[in-house]
Amino acid sequence: MKKLVYIVLACVSVLALVNVARYMGDSSSKAPDYHSEVILTLFSMKTSSDFIINLPDTGDSVKLTSIIDLGTPHGKAQGNYQVGEERGEVLLDYMHINPLGQITADNRIYFVAPFTVSNQGSGVFTYVGLFEQDIDNQTIQHLDSYFIGDRIKLNEMRLWDSKIELSFNQHGEQQAYAEVPTETVHLTLGVDGAIPTKLLKQQDI
């Protein structure tokens, strides 16, 4: 009987240690008073939800955790990630956030913003992201991404007649990626409906 009690106690101890290890290793566990500094700074919403960027074509996601160069034209929201052995960084250019229309009847705002993804390689991949801000639930959801280019220089991004107009410099066919890109491209994007879920290319000049 004593032996059975010892076995039960040993099993309970092991389970307790496993649960503690899971809790300590779970980065998603949050303190009761946790709030996203990025969402508070950019949207004045004090919420325990995070601003998550979905890495295109991977199924992985990155939490934006800090603001760099606040109050300057180079301001970005930053997040770091590790997928397997790959480490990288995501930078959201909040200076180019553009809302799509007015607040909806159910208190949602849709907006677009460019962001870059880089890893240990030399590439810096720029995308335009489509996002939904749910004011009642105080959340930001990443809906879609449109790839712009590798190591480009964004000159301008604005809304015009419900279209997203971009001007950027990319590398020419005979130009090395180590050089500053000089070929100017104009791109217009739209969305798929009044309640947007996807970014669509409209024209390329």
Score class of each variant (00 low, 15 high):
residue 152 I to M: 07
residue 153 K to Y: 13
residue 154 L to E: 09
residue 155 N to M: 10
residue 155 N to C: 10
residue 156 E to W: 05
residue 156 E to F: 02
residue 157 M to P: 05
residue 157 M to D: 01
residue 157 M to N: 07
residue 158 R to Y: 13
residue 158 R to A: 11
residue 158 R to V: 13
residue 159 L to I: 14
residue 160 W to E: 15
residue 160 W to D: 15
residue 160 W to Q: 15
residue 161 D to W: 05
residue 162 S to T: 14
residue 162 S to N: 15
residue 163 K to E: 14
residue 163 K to P: 07
residue 165 E to F: 03
residue 165 E to G: 03
residue 166 L to C: 05
residue 166 L to R: 07
residue 167 S to N: 12
residue 167 S to T: 12
residue 168 F to Q: 02
residue 168 F to K: 02
residue 169 N to K: 12
residue 169 N to F: 09
residue 169 N to H: 10
residue 170 Q to R: 14
residue 170 Q to T: 08
residue 171 H to C: 06
residue 171 H to V: 02
residue 172 G to M: 01
residue 172 G to A: 12
residue 172 G to Y: 01
residue 172 G to N: 11
residue 173 E to D: 14
residue 174 Q to T: 14
residue 174 Q to F: 05
residue 175 Q to H: 07
residue 176 A to H: 08
residue 176 A to S: 15
residue 178 A to M: 04
residue 178 A to P: 01
residue 179 E to G: 01
residue 179 E to F: 00
residue 180 V to W: 01
residue 181 P to W: 00
residue 181 P to C: 04
residue 182 T to H: 00
residue 182 T to A: 04
residue 182 T to I: 06
residue 183 E to G: 05
residue 183 E to S: 12
residue 184 T to I: 09
residue 184 T to F: 03
residue 184 T to D: 11
residue 185 V to E: 06
residue 185 V to D: 01
residue 185 V to H: 01
residue 185 V to R: 08
residue 185 V to I: 15
residue 186 H to A: 13
residue 187 L to W: 04
residue 188 T to L: 03
residue 188 T to V: 14
residue 189 L to G: 09
residue 189 L to Q: 08
residue 190 G to A: 10
residue 190 G to W: 01
residue 191 V to G: 01
residue 191 V to F: 01
residue 191 V to K: 01
residue 191 V to W: 02
residue 192 D to N: 15
residue 192 D to H: 05
residue 193 G to C: 08
residue 193 G to W: 07
residue 194 A to V: 11
residue 195 I to M: 12
residue 195 I to Q: 13
residue 196 P to L: 09
